[in-house]
Amino acid sequence: MKKIHIVTLVLIAAAIAYMLVTMSKDLTTYDTIASAKQKQGKFIHLIAKLDRSKNVEYDPVTDPNFLAFYAVDSLGGQTKVIYHSTKPPELEMSERIVLKGKMNGDVFECKEILLKCPSKYKDDPEHQKRDFENKMQN
């Protein structure tokens, strides 16, 4: 075997070994609110919706870094969410939210919010329809 082949194999083996070792630490799971409550204190991704029947608590004048709201998921789970940063401007319009953080008792302490906003779904026919109906009303 040529030296270059040995080097190649060693490098690839090292890369694979590294990934296998670190992967379990780096990866987390998508959870429902119910399963998240079983995993207290573990960093997870939550797929949920904003609970529109409850108030979104955010007052930037008193504290711009405090947002609290309720999230529900399709399986009927519900939790309070606290996020220590500004309110994403499109929160109220979002159709789905991915919350990254930890469950702490009954409160989900969120570190990052990803929104799936209707504005990003211009090509979605359902959304086009809603947009259109809005336009007719205004």
Partner: peptide, 12 residues
């Protein structure tokens, strides 16, 4: 599966 990059994706 249901895997996602964890707490600190940039650091990964």
């Amino acid at each position: 599966t249901q895997k996602a990059i964890g707490e600190d994706p940039e650091y990964v």
